[in-house]
Design a protein around this nucleic acid. Structure first.
Length: 535
RNA sequence: GUGCCCGUAGCUCAGCUGGUAGAGCAUCCGACUUUUAAUCGGACGGUCGAAGGUUCGAAUCCUUCCGGGCACACCA
């Protein structure tokens, strides 16, 4: 999924200007911006809050931002350097001990401290909780091959990278307040400050009003809420950090961010932060508000609720590429993100990849697979679709890949795990899907007296079949037994086999099933079924 | 209240810069199967939420309205 240079050639550059895919529409906004004020390097930003772990939304945002960047490089002939900054707001105060971490009491002692001062509850491998989560984020992004530059807010504040911007914010303090105050409630207005000093005594991030400020000296003064003493601190060097919307604006201004997308719940924040940047004399980045994801009931997916689908969920049943495809599609439309969208995304990914084989550069630029891969997509040939595979795994009661491959080879005789590693990967996904979604819905019933007798005889006579892999011979035997015990109509006999042995009303052709599942295994299965062990 | 998204076949949705609608699933019929499922072929099925407007021509652009969903304190 990394951006590789493959599509960055003249042919693609020539066609990019006419490309209509949304990443190009976004990239064009940046091109226009550059026409007004040229610069040496274009910066994309995505934000990350290290009080939690990376999640499916993080993936979506970085993936989509990468797509815009790729489009931008194509539009500009890859002549203008660009990068994605992944900014971790790790100086933010520690507000709440997450319920899912160990060492709760110890963690509680650090409430109010910057996240980079809170110890890592999981191990002593990292200097802080934030470092731990930052590392997880980077690992997460690296695993998918994203190109980005990680930035720690704490590093930037303390090393002075943000000093100039902080002093500027101090200069225009009144204007900034004028922008923010009207958006706050009455209570909050009294205590609001865009600067949050770090208490020199306790190290905590304080939410206190400023009582004075000195632009010349570059300091602010507040009253320590515990000692009631006046404290004066510089706004530079990491002695203060900025509050949320001001912080966003500060970053945009200080780093010169050109592009940042965010969820639609942040529309007002973007507007406000933009006004702050203008008050400082800067230009806010181009932005895109994407729609939020909904769960199966149409509710907003939130980390705290734990509803909807997690990153792990998706990757358990499907590939990251298919998730990237899902993220590519219609970012401005609210979509359900639930298990049932997975098969379609998987199959469409392969369909788009395959279509790419015969496409011209102009067409490729409209092909989602191009935007996902960031390169000429490798053409994966799949003899059967994921949707079919899911049907198969369910019908065949296939709990391991060998059995499933047996059934697959009936449809695609040439396919093996070796010749079709992609398909083999899907087989793994399908089996997990089966285990988690199909298997729990199975309902086994006890055999009737007549059925029990017939099944016992079937089990006993299975050994008569000379070739245990001869599906036809086995099918004949099954058929004979059914006739002998006078099932009428005969399909009831087969139905009984499925219901008693597989816990479902339908199943694969039984002869084929036995041939693949194994004679001994089938006998054992029948024994279990008759003993009531499957119920 | 402000803003965003959606409203196209029974269901889930695709329809790009305007030229009288498509897919998957479901349903029905057929083929192949010594049951079923699967697979393959075919059929059925839409006044494109409503009304105006622009246009030779609109699902597609504009306006208004109706219906559904979501976001908008604090915190990030």
């Amino acid at each position: 999924m990394a951006n590789t240079p493959t599509i960055f050639d003249a042919e693609f550059f020539a066609n990019a200007a006419n490309a209509r895919a949304w990443p190009f529409e976004e990239a064009k906004k940046i091109v226009k911006r550059l026409e007004k004020s040229p610069k040496d390097e274009v910066l994309f930003q995505t934000g990350y809050g290290p009080s939690g772990l990376p999640h499916i939304g993080t993936f979506g945002e970085v993936a989509r931002t990468s797509m815009v960047r790729t489009a931008f490089r194509l539009l500009t002939g890859d002549k203008i350097p660009s990068k994605i900054i992944c900014f971790s707001d790790d100086m933010d105060g520690f507000r709440k001990v997450p319920t899912n971490v160990p060492n709760q009491e110890r963690m509680a002692e650090y409430l109010g401290m910057p996240l980079t001062k809170v110890p890592d509850p999981f191990s002593d491998e990292y200097p802080s909780f934030a470092h731990h989560n930052n590392a997880r984020l980077q690992k997460f992004l690296d695993d998918f091959g994203f190109e980005y530059e990680f930035v720690s807010s704490t590093d930037y504040y303390t090393s002075g990278v943000l000093d100039k911007a902080l002093l500027r914010m101090l200069e225009v303090y009144d204007d900034v307040m004028k922008v923010i105050l009207p958006t706050l409630g009455e209570e909050r207005q009294k205590t609001y400050s865009p600067f949050l000093p770090l208490c020199p005594r306790t190290g905590k991030v304080l939410q206190v009003p400023m009582i004075a400020r000195d632009v010349e000296a570059g300091t602010v003064t507040y009253i320590d809420p515990e000692t009631n003493e006046e404290v004066t601190v510089p706004v530079t060097g990491g002695a203060v950090k900025c509050q949320w919307k001001a912080d966003w604006a500060l970053r945009w201004y200080a780093l010169g961010i050109d592009y940042e997308m965010s969820g639609k719940d942040l529309i007002d924040s973007v507007r406000l932060s933009s006004r702050i940047v203008r008050a400082m004399g800067g230009t806010p980045p181009e932005s895109l508000s994407y729609e939020l994801f909904l769960d199966e009931k149409g509710q907003k997916i939130s980390k705290s609720k734990g509803n909807g689908l997690s990153m792990e969920d998706w990757l358990t049943y499907a590939s990251p590429e298919s998730l990237a495809l899902f993220m590519y599609q219609k970012p401005k439309t609210a979509k359900k993100l639930y298990f049932d969208v997975i098969p379609k995304a998987v199959d469409e990914f392969y369909a788009f990849s395959k279509a790419a084989e015969k496409q011209t550069p102009a067409e490729l630029l409209e092909n989602p697979a191009t935007h996902i891969a960031g390169e000429f997509p490798p053409a994966h040939e799949l003899p059967i679709s994921f949707a079919l595979l899911l049907n198969l795994v369910s019908a065949a009661n296939a709990e391991d890949s060998d059995v499933l491959w047996g059934f697959i080879s009936r449809y695609a005789p040439d396919a093996t795990p070796e010749t079709h590693p992609e398909l083999d990967r899907l087989v793994g996904y399908a089996i997990r899907y089966f285990n988690d979604f199909v298997k729990p819905t199975k309902e086994f019933r006890a055999a009737t007296e007549q059925e029990a007798k017939a099944m016992a005889e079937l089990a006993a006579r299975l050994d008569e079949v000379e070739d245990a892999t001869d599906a036809e011979a086995i099918q004949t035997l099954v058929f004979e037994v059914g006739k002998k015990y006078e099932f009428e109509p005969l399909r009831n006999w087969f139905k009984a086999l499925y219901q008693v042995l597989l816990g479902q009303d339908q199943g694969p052709r039984f002869g084929s099933f036995v041939a693949l599942y194994g004679v001994e295994e089938t006998k054992a299965l029948i024994a279990k079924g008759l003993a009531g062990e499957l119920l």
